[in-house]
Computed example of a mutant assay.
Amino acid sequence: MSEKLVNEFIQKAEAAAAKVTRVKTLDEAYREVLNIIHEAQVHEVGCVATDMTQGLFPLLKEQGIKAIAEGAPRDLARLEIGIVPVDVGIAETGTVAHDATDLYSRYFSMLCPVNIVMLRTSRIKENMTEALKLLENSGIYPAYMAFITGPSRTADIERVLTIGVHGPGRLHIILVDEGE
């Protein structure tokens, strides 16, 4: 992990209106996720089940928060927060990217007004070329890849910038230093 790349990533992501928090361990990341959920005062969240989030599910349950990992699209559309581990970060633009071939991974990163992503700092690369090499070397060949740079924004209605129209209005990126 290069501190220079991590700092550049944080700077670029924050410039794109993402809120970035850096933690040392997954346990700290889980506490940060719980803080965001409590701040939003929600009791149901969408959460992609992976090795990175497996320890989060019991904590959510313990806090009385229902974690939904799958379901019908009409039921998922009501969720306020989606939690998605991402595969790679791109320092040059402050972008995160993940294999969104799985429908629920796509839903939770695109439909929920608040998107919480978790990224290991060791997976931050300098640019798109390096990010794609990392994915290829990891054996990830997605049919659908999502690239996220800050909250959703558009200015296609009378050139007035509007946040959250075509996706999440808030993006929280939790960087985890703990190794893979």
Rank of each mutant, 00 (worst) to 15 (best):
Met1Asp: 09
Met1Thr: 02
Ser2Met: 02
Glu3Asn: 12
Glu3Tyr: 00
Lys4Arg: 14
Leu5Ile: 05
Val6Gln: 05
Asn7Cys: 04
Glu8Leu: 13
Glu8His: 06
Glu8Ala: 03
Phe9Gly: 03
Phe9Asn: 00
Ile10Val: 15
Gln11Asn: 09
Gln11Glu: 15
Lys12Ala: 02
Ala13Val: 00
Ala13Lys: 03
Ala13Glu: 00
Ala16His: 01
Thr21Gly: 02
Arg22Ile: 12
Lys24Ile: 13
Thr25Lys: 11
Asp27Val: 07
Glu28Trp: 13
Ala29Ser: 07
Tyr30Ser: 02
Val33Thr: 10
Asn35Ala: 13
Asn35Tyr: 09
Ile36Thr: 08
Glu39Thr: 15
Glu39Gln: 14
Gln41Asn: 15
Val42Ser: 01
Val42Phe: 12
His43Glu: 10
Glu44Pro: 04
Gly46Gln: 05
Cys47Ala: 15
Ala49Cys: 07
Thr50Tyr: 14
Thr50Ile: 08
Asp51Pro: 11
Met52Ile: 08
Thr53Trp: 14
Gln54Leu: 10
Gln54Phe: 13
Gly55Cys: 01
Phe57Arg: 13
Pro58Lys: 11
Pro58Met: 15
Lys61Gln: 12
Glu62Arg: 15
Gln63Cys: 09
Lys66His: 10
Lys66Ile: 13
Ile68Leu: 12
Ile68Gly: 08
Ala69Asn: 08
Gly71Cys: 14
Ala72Asp: 05
Ala72Glu: 04
Ala72Leu: 14
Pro73Val: 12
Pro73Leu: 14
Arg74Thr: 12
Leu76Lys: 11
Ala77Asn: 09
Arg78Ala: 15
Leu79Val: 05
Leu79Gly: 01
Leu79Phe: 07
Gly82Ile: 05
Ile83Asp: 01
Pro85Gly: 10
Val86Met: 06
Val86Leu: 06
Val86Pro: 04
Asp87Met: 04
Gly89His: 03
Gly89Asn: 04
Ala91Cys: 06
Gly94Ala: 08
Val96Asp: 00
Val96Thr: 04
Val96Ile: 13
Val96Asn: 03
His98Gln: 03
Asp99Met: 06
Ala100Val: 04
Thr101Ile: 11
Asp102Leu: 07
Tyr104Thr: 01
Arg106Glu: 05
Met110Glu: 04
Cys112Tyr: 00
Ile116Glu: 00
Val117Ala: 04
Val117Lys: 00
Met118Pro: 03
Leu119Gln: 05
Leu119Val: 08
Arg120Phe: 08
Arg120Leu: 12
Arg123Ile: 02
Arg123Glu: 01
Asn127Tyr: 09
Met128Lys: 13
Thr129Lys: 15
Thr129Asn: 13
Leu135Thr: 02
Leu135Phe: 07
Glu136Trp: 13
Glu136Leu: 12
Tyr141Phe: 12
Tyr141Gly: 10
Met145Thr: 11
Phe147Cys: 04
Ile148His: 04
Pro151Gln: 08
Ser152Met: 11
Ser152Lys: 10
Glu158Ile: 06
Glu158His: 14
Val160Gln: 06
Val160Asn: 08
Val160Phe: 00
Thr162Asn: 06
Gly164Thr: 11
Gly164Lys: 14
Gly164Val: 06
Gly164Asn: 13
Pro168His: 10
Gly169Asn: 05
Arg170Ser: 05
Arg170Cys: 01
Arg170Tyr: 09
Arg170Met: 10
Ile174Ser: 01
Leu175Asp: 01
Val176Phe: 11
Asp177Ser: 13
Glu178Ala: 12
Glu178Lys: 14
Gly179Lys: 15
